[in-house]
Computed example of a mutant assay.
Amino acid sequence: MQDLDTLRYPIGDFVYGQSYTADDTRQHIAIIQELPVKLTELVGKWGDDRLDTPYRPNGWTVRQLVHHVADSHMNAYVRTKLALTETNPTISPYEEGEWAKLPDSKLDIGPSLVLLRSLHLRWVTILESLTEADLQRTYFHPGNQRTFAVREVIALYAWHSEHHYQHAYRLAERNGWA
């Protein structure tokens, strides 16, 4: 069994405050764009037994993870639009762990996979159109007590996409499902 830190952070933790080039940002957008198809190809046909398997001890099930990614990326999409249309807005944090306990986290994953495909189409359309000035626009996160530039938000959600994809992928590898 792998150690819990590796199971929790299979690609490492996100490092805040980094600098990103235009090429980095294009790569991050590509990762965001690819996630819905990758995730659907991996877990889209899994049965309840696999979907209800936690990716680590005391962790979320794959079902909760898929719904969480949809919830999280909806919030990120709205936060991106707020940053692009307002001056350093204060965004609303949410309790992701509590959201994962709500009844919709027990639904079939199909609606969340469809939502991710549509949401990412809209989000990536915006992201690909951003100018350098747009990438420097910001929002304030009161939970973290920090200001995020859109460029860093793109990097964060590219990381988030791969982070959660790897949770499911490595679970599949460990159990011989891949």
Rank of each mutant, 00 (worst) to 15 (best):
V43M: 06
L107R: 13
S129C: 03
D104A: 04
P54Y: 00
E95Y: 06
H167K: 09
E96D: 13
L113I: 00
R50F: 06
G176C: 07
Q64R: 10
D134P: 08
L116S: 07
H68M: 12
D104G: 01
Q18L: 13
L127Y: 00
A178R: 14
T40M: 05
P93V: 04
V69C: 11
V62C: 05
I31T: 14
Q18M: 11
L119S: 04
I91F: 09
P111G: 05
A22V: 08
V124C: 03
A100T: 09
S118L: 12
I11F: 05
L156N: 14
G176S: 07
A178P: 02
T125N: 15
E95F: 03
Y157A: 04
L82N: 01
Y20A: 11
D23N: 11
Y20E: 08
P54W: 00
L113Y: 03
Y20D: 10
R26K: 14
R174I: 04
S72L: 02
I32H: 01
Q33A: 14
P36L: 01
P89G: 01
L107S: 11
L127D: 03
T80M: 08
D5E: 14
A149Q: 15
P142S: 07
V43L: 04
Y16C: 08
G44H: 05
I126Q: 08
D5R: 06
N175Q: 14
F14L: 12
I29D: 02
A168K: 09
L127H: 02
T25P: 01
Q145K: 15
G143Y: 07
T87N: 14
W46T: 01
Q64M: 11
D5A: 04
S112G: 02
S105V: 00
L116W: 06
T6Q: 12
G97E: 11
R8Q: 15
H141G: 07
W123M: 11
Y165W: 11
P103E: 11
M74T: 12
T6I: 07
L7C: 09
E96S: 12
E173D: 08
T21S: 15
N58W: 01
N75V: 10
E152T: 09
D52S: 09
L171T: 13
V124T: 10
W99V: 06
D134E: 05
R146P: 01
V66W: 03
Q166E: 15
H160V: 02
T25H: 02
L65R: 06
S112I: 00
K106V: 01
G110A: 13
K101A: 09
W46V: 00
